[in-house]
């Protein structure tokens, strides 16, 4: 979302405008969800983090110093809550067993089920292939791209808040990760 729009919506929501709040949720939910997914939490943990972030945002609404940067505020809050979950898990576990942290959802969304019923659909197959190669990218690339692919596309400031990496390094890293994904897809196509 455009920062100016976000700022205006935050100010309207502070004044009690529920429609403005809804627009903020619609516009920034995918970013928050992307940050949660980028950290590969279990579904239960991820859902709780997502909710905690929005509850806290509602609570802080009138106190946010830079309303234009509410997207970064949300991304940063989501990141910190994700890191707390991971820290809590590692503290409970005798070893740093990455497998336990690394539990992507097994549940099929209705959309996925629809894809399954249309095996032959070339578009579905293309998406599936793309997703598979994306999932198999190195962890850091997977994380960066998972945040970048939110709708609407997040600003680099938001990506920086979401992942704790410098704004200036995001562009070059994005190029590298996408180039790498492209190469994987090409290699697969040629095989």
């Amino acid at each position: 979302m455009e920062r100016a729009d976000v700022g205006a919506l935050v100010r309207a929501a502070v004044d009690g405008d529920a429609a403005a709040w809804k627009a903020l949720v619609e516009g920034l939910s995918p970013l928050v969800w992307s940050v949660v997914r980028a950290h590969r939490l279990s579904d239960a943990d991820g859902h709780e983090v997502y909710q905690t972030v929005w509850f806290r945002f509602a609570q802080h609404l009138g106190r946010i110093r830079e309303p234009d940067k509410a997207g970064s505020w949300l991304a940063s809050t989501a990141r910190h809550e994700c890191l707390k979950v991971i820290k809590g898990l590692t503290r409970l576990m005798p070893t740093d067993d990455q497998q336990l942290l690394d539990r992507p959802s097994e549940d099929l969304t209705p959309e996925q089920s629809l894809l399954d019923s249309e095996e032959a659909d070339a578009q579905a197959e293309r998406i599936r292939r793309l997703w598979q190669e994306f999932e198999e990218l190195g962890e850091r690339c997977r994380q960066l791209l998972r945040v970048l692919m939110a709708t609407p596309p997040p600003s680099y400031q938001e990506v920086s808040s979401a992942l704790g990496i410098a704004v200036g390094s995001i562009g070059p890293l994005r190029q590298r990760c996408l180039r790498r994904l492209r190469a994987r897809l090409d290699a697969r196509g040629a095989a």
């Binding site: 529920a18 997502y50 009138g62 959309e111 996925q112």
Partner: peptide
Amino acid sequence: ELRQAVAVLDPVPDELRQIAIEAFALHD
């Protein structure tokens, strides 16, 4: 293309979006 794929394969769950909308009540 990734953005289109994620909209199909890993969108924000509807029930979560709804909870976030209702969270406006926590604005006090």
